[in-house]
Design a binder for these strands. Sequence first.
DNA 1: TTGAAAGCGCTAACAC
DNA 2: GTGTTAGCGCTTTCAA
Lengths: 335, 335
Amino acid sequence: MDQERPVKLSDISKALNLSVSTVSRALNDSHEIGEETKRIVQSYAARVNYRPNLIAQSLKEMNTRYIAIIVPEISNSFFAEIVNGVEFVANNQGYHVVIYQTHDSTEREINIIRDVARRKADGLLLSPSTNQTEVNEVMKSIGAKLPVVYFDRVPSDNYCHKVVCDNYQAAFDATTWLIKQGKRRIAHMAGPSGISISIERLAGYSAALLNAGISVDPNLIRYSNFLAREAWDNLRDLEEKYQPDAYFASSDRLSFYCYEAVQKLPEPRASEVKIVGFTNAPFAHLLRPKLSAIVQPAFDMGKIAAEMLLNTITKKNKDIEYGFIKLPAVLKNTE
Amino acid sequence: MDQERPVKLSDISKALNLSVSTVSRALNDSHEIGEETKRIVQSYAARVNYRPNLIAQSLKEMNTRYIAIIVPEISNSFFAEIVNGVEFVANNQGYHVVIYQTHDSTEREINIIRDVARRKADGLLLSPSTNQTEVNEVMKSIGAKLPVVYFDRVPSDNYCHKVVCDNYQAAFDATTWLIKQGKRRIAHMAGPSGISISIERLAGYSAALLNAGISVDPNLIRYSNFLAREAWDNLRDLEEKYQPDAYFASSDRLSFYCYEAVQKLPEPRASEVKIVGFTNAPFAHLLRPKLSAIVQPAFDMGKIAAEMLLNTITKKNKDIEYGFIKLPAVLKNTE
DNA sequence: TTGAAAGCGCTAACAC
DNA sequence: GTGTTAGCGCTTTCAA
C-alpha cells in the first residue's frame, strides 16, 4: 500500500530520452515544441501521474498563486461570508485562498502574518484584531513586499487599501429606529475601544441620540473586548443600575449575548426591551422576540477586497493608487 | 514607500565576509559555530530583518510544516469547532493549519485536494463532501504520499484513519427521546444518501422506532442534498401529505430549515411539532420554541484527528496502524 | 570552527 | 525543435 516517490521531470526525461527542459516545455504546451513530442510527453506524464511540485515552481517563479485571508473567527458568519466573496473572485482568477484565524489573539495574529510572508503568499487580506500600531510594526518587519488589503477593521491612515461598510450610517439608522420605537435609554454594547469599527459605530449612535434631542449618557456605553465575561459583567451591571429600554450591540457576539441576557429578565421586561445589533447570522431571523439585525454586505465586501488585492498583485510596478471602498449595511427584522 | 527586496542568506554572508553555510548554521544555532560568530550573525540578521524563505526551505527539506483541513463550509459551527481543535494540537507541535472549504462541490473538492498535494502539505484532514469512490480515485491520482485522516464523513473501508462521533447512538437517543415525548409520526430529514453519516443516522432512527414498536414509514424519510430547495420541497411535501408530529434532522442546516418551516405552520401545530437535530450552533438554545440539539464533541474530534495525523507524519516509516475513533454526542435543550 | 559545492524540482535564457 | 546550463534560497555533506 506504500505510495511511490512522486514522479518528477527528470524521471520523464530519462524514460523518454528527452532533456528536462523539453519535457517541461512540452507539458507547459510551449510553442517551440513539436506536436508529436508534446503528445508523447503529455500522454506519458498522464500515464505516470506526473504532478508538478508547486514548491519548486514557486521558488523559481517567485510567486505562489495564492492569497491568504486572516480573520478573527471563521465561525462568525460575517467573516465566513467575506471569505466566500474572496474565494469567488480569487478562484476565478486562478488563485487559491487559504484561510487563517486569530481567535482575536494578537500573538497568533502576528505569528500568522509572519508565516504568510515567509511562505510567500502573493497577497494578504487582513482584518486586524490587533492594536493598529502593532500591526504596522509587524507589516514593516516582515522584510518582504506583501500586498495587503484591509477590511472591516482598518487603519486610519490613507496609505493602504481598505474595504468597509458604512458603520457610522448603520449605527445611526439602527439607533434612530430604536428611538422611533419610543426608546430613550438606549445602551450601546461596543467592541474594543480604539479600533475603527468601534469608533464609527459609537459616533453614529451618539449622533442619532443627539439628533433626537437625547443626551448621550456615558454610563450606557460599555466596551467589551473579546471575552464573554466582560460582556456579561457589562450587561449585568447595566441591568442592575440603569435598566436600559433598548440595546444597540456592535458585533455578532455582543448581539447574541445581549439577546440572551435580556431573555433571562423577568417579564414584561424580557419582551419589552428591544435589541438591534450587527449580525450576519443566517438564522437570526428565527428568534422570538425579534433580534433586529444590521446586516453587512459581507459577500460583496469580500469580492471587492479580493479584486483590489489581485489588482495590486498583477500590475505590480504601476504607481499605487490606494482604494477606499465603503458599502452600505441594511437594517432587518424590524417587523 | 517601496519595500526593498527581502534579504537572503547570501546578502548576510557578503556583508559579514562569511560563507553562506556559516551564516545558515549560525542562524540555526548549530553547535559547530563559535559563540562569537553566532552572536555577530544573529544580531546582524535581526538588524536587517532577515526572514528565511520558507519556500526554499521546504524545497530543500521536503516538508512544509503545515497541514491542510478541507471542510464543506467554515460557517458551520460543527466544522469551525473541529478546525479549532485541529489548530490547538497542530500549533502546539509547530505546525500551521490552512483551511479550505468545498461548499459541497465535488469539483472544488478535487481541485483542492490536488492543490494540497502539489503544494506538499505534510498532511490532510478531510471530510469528503464527495462520493467516496471518487475521493479514492483522486487520492490515488495525486501521485504523492500524503497522510490523510478522515473525520465526520468517512470511507467504509478500514485502511485509513478515521474520527467520527457515534452517529448511530446519537440518532437512536434523539429518536427515542421524541418517542418518549409521545410522538409517533417522526419524520427524518436525512442528508445525502450513501455517505457514512446519513447511513448511520438513518439506522439509529429506524432502530429506535422499531424498538418502540413503531413501524418505519419510508414516506417519512427524506433525503436532501446540499441545496436549500430540496430541503424545502421535502418539508412542504411532508407537511401537505403526512403532517409529521416530530422531525429528526440530520444536519445543522436541515435542523434550521425544519425549525423555520415548522414555525411558519399555523398554531397550534407550530408549537406542538417537536424538532431535534444535529447542530453545534452556539445560539441554538436561544430559540423558542426549543430546538433540541444533538451536539457533537467537535473540538475533541478535531484534536484527535490532528493527533492521529501528526503521529503518522512524524513516525513516517513505521508500520501503519490505522486508527478508528468514535466519540459520543450529547442531546441538549430537552427542557 | 569555517568554506565549497551539490542538490531539492523547476523554468528559461542561450546555444545549436 | 531540442539540449545545456544557470539559478531560485536554502541545508548539509565533505573537505580543510
